[in-house]
Each structure stands twice: as structure tokens, then as C-alpha cells.
């Protein structure tokens, strides 16, 4: 298992390199010029040339790419913002904490609310509970966050004055952004849990467990739930990774200085260091989350551990088992 994890971590390097090259190339080819953004509309050609040289943008594509890759891998230097001159690494380190706080709490709420709702909907299929939860899930998925967020602001901030409108000063300021973010996730996890549970509770071993006299709750908890959780874990992991990329709409509306707004400002200003740095960070998080999800699978379903066992040790264990040592 440890070897597998190490292997996956080492595989991150070529993956991130590939992401870096693709993103760098796309931003390089995208219309729009950061020099023009900085200088405005009234610059002279001489000033343009001087500014481009200052930013290193007068070099060839390959030269720029090589310099960028070299600085990242040797010094973790993502460069400085063309606009603010603040090192990108410094800003990313601050903002990832902000986004992580919101993402982690959102995921916890998604799981704590979504999974039980899904279980109830599946065990009481076609009941009012089932219809209620599936309708809620459908509605939450259908209404986009850029609609929900301002509506929440008007109701809870302007009319009721329960929460602050923007910023992250105090615990109460986290409530609405997390609520808006969580709605979509709850809907997704509810539906995923419900469909997965419905499939599982129809299995023979569940019928056997019931026939043996096990209580309904015990059957769900001990047998059905674990088997139904695999797709839920997958969805949860990818949701978290997406959220860590920055829930842009929520961050803009609630003025949260997270990764989403940072990347958005970078894109609109053609601030290449910010764009490249943010995307690499997001790609890293996605890769790490996929490793975490794989490890979590084995916790839920120990049978899956065998996929992490190497062929050699797998054969050795087989032979020992055949020899009657009792190893599996």
C-alpha cells in the first residue's frame, strides 16, 4: 500500500508538468496582451518594448516556458503578479487556506446531510420522504449558485439581517457561502446515495441478512451502507477537488479572497503567473484527492486492498496460502 501511494505521488510530477505545459501554451496563445493591460491605451511603441522586456515577454515561447518550469521545480517560484508585484506563491498560500476552510466544512455538511437523506429516501422508496428529498435534490441542482447566492443575501442579510453580506470577518460570515456551496453537493450526494443504496439493498445477501432476523437499521448500517458508499466517495472526492479550485461565483458575490477570485482576476488581467500558478495548484489538489479517494476505498471495502498489492507479493501470498500457512 505504501509503495502504491509513493508511486502515485511520483506520478504527480509528469502529470503536473503536462498540465503546466498545456496551460502555459493556452495562455500564451490566448488573444490579449498583459503589457497592454498594464500600459493602457496611450503607450508608445518604445514603452511597449521596454515593458515587454521587463516582464520577460519578449522572449520566445520555448525560452519563456523553460524559464518558468525551471523556476517552479528548483525554487517553487511561480513568479510575481504583473499587476500587484506580489509573489504568486505567497498569495496562493494565503488563499488556499481560505478556500480550504470553506471547502472542508462544505464537504462535511454535504456528507452529513446528503448521506442520511439518501439512505432514508432509498429505504422509504416512493414515500413522502423519498419524493421530498428527491424533489429537493432536483431543485437544488437546477437552480444555479449565482441565483441562490443573491437570493440568500437579500433574504438573510438585507431583510433579516442575520448574517453579514460580504467578507470573512467572524464565524457568521462563513454561514451563507457554505450554505450556497453545500446545496448543490447535498443534492448530488443524496441522489448518488439513494441510487447506490437502492441497488445494494436488492442484493441477495441483504435478503439473507433480513431473513436471519437482523433489524432494518442494522442491515443498512452493517451491510448495505458500506457497499453503497463507493460511488459516493468518488463523487465527494471530485466535489472537494472542484471546490478547492475555487467556487468562483460564491467567492465573487460574497467577496471571499480565495483561489477562485484570484484566478478570475488573473484571467481578466492576462496575469500569466497567477493563471499558471493557480491552475497548477488546482491540478495538484485534484491528483492528491484521487489518491485519498483510492485509499478511502480500501477502508470501506477491504477487498479492494488487493489492487494495491504488487504481482510479486501477490504470487508469494498465493503460494503460502496453497502451502497451508493460512495467509490470504
Amino acid at each position: 500500500m505504501a509503495k502504491y501511494v509513493l508511486k502515485r505521488i511520483l506520478l504527480l510530477i509528469p502529470v503536473l508538468l503536462g498540465v503546466l505545459i498545456v496551460v502555459f501554451t493556452i495562455t500564451y496563445l490566448t488573444p490579449g496582451d498583459p503589457v497592454v493591460t498594464i500600459l493602457g491605451t496611450g503607450y508608445t511603441p518604445e514603452k511597449y518594448v521596454a515593458k515587454a522586456a521587463e516582464l520577460g515577454l519578449d522572449k520566445s515561447y520555448l525560452e519563456q516556458l523553460w524559464n518558468y518550469i525551471w523556476h517552479i521545480f528548483t525554487r517553487l517560484d511561480f513568479g510575481k503578479s504583473y499587476i500587484t508585484n506580489v509573489p504568486v506563491a505567497t498569495e496562493l498560500a494565503t488563499r488556499v487556506v481560505v478556500t480550504a476552510k470553506i471547502a472542508i466544512i462544505t464537504i462535511i455538511i454535504d456528507v452529513l446531510v446528503g448521506v442520511p437523506c439518501g439512505i432514508i429516501a432509498s429505504t422509504k422508496q416512493y414515500s413522502a420522504w423519498d419524493y421530498g428529498f428527491t424533489s429537493f435534490a432536483l431543485l437544488s441542482s437546477a437552480i444555479p449558485s449565482f441565483v441562490i447566492a443573491p437570493v440568500f443575501q437579500v433574504i438573510f442579510c438585507v431583510k433579516l439581517r442575520w448574517f453579514p453580506l460580504a467578507g470573512l470577518a467572524g464565524v457568521s460570515s462563513y454561514v451563507l457561502p457554505i450554505a450556497v456551496n453545500a446545496l448543490g453537493g447535498i443534492a448530488l450526494i443524496t441522489r448518488m446515495t439513494r441510487s447506490s443504496m437502492l441497488e445494494t439493498i436488492r442484493q441477495d445477501y441483504i435478503r439473507t441478512a433480513k431473513a436471519k432476523g437482523m433489524g432494518r437499521r442494522e442491515v443498512v448500517r452493517k451491510h448495505a451502507l458500506k457497499n453503497a458508499l463507493i460511488p459516493v466517495i468518488t463523487v465527494t472526492g471530485s466535489s472537494f477537488a472542484l471546490m478547492m479550485g475555487g467556487a468562483l461565483v460564491v467567492e465573487m458575490i460574497f467577496t471571499i479572497p480565495g483561489l477562485g477570485t484570484y484566478l478570475y482576476n488573473g484571467i481578466t488581467n492576462r496575469d500569466y503567473p497567477i493563471i499558471n500558478g493557480s491552475v497548477i495548484l488546482a491540478a495538484t489538489i485534484v491528483c492528491i484527492m484521487s489518491i485519498v479517494v483510492d485509499i478511502t476505498y480500501t477502508v470501506v471495502d477491504p477487498r479492494l486492498k488487493t489492487q494495491f498489492v504488487s504481482k510479486k507479493s501477490g504470487n508469494r501470498r498465493k503460494k503460502l496460502a496453497q502451502a497451508g500457512d493460512g495467509h490470504v
Binding site: P150, Q153, V154, C157, V158, R161, P164, L165, A166, G167, E251, M252, I253, F254, T255, T261
Partner: peptide, 18 residues
């Protein structure tokens, strides 16, 4: 000086007296 990424949010906060 408080920053707002969204002008509608800023206007609402002005309305609230913040």
C-alpha cells in the same frame, strides 16, 4: 476601504449602512 468583488453586493451593504 472595504473591497467588493461584486458591485451589487457593495450596493446592498451601502443600503444596510455597513
Amino acid at each position: 476601504m472595504k473591497y467588493y468583488a461584486d458591485s451589487a453586493t457593495m450596493a446592498m451593504d451601502m443600503e444596510l449602512g455597513n
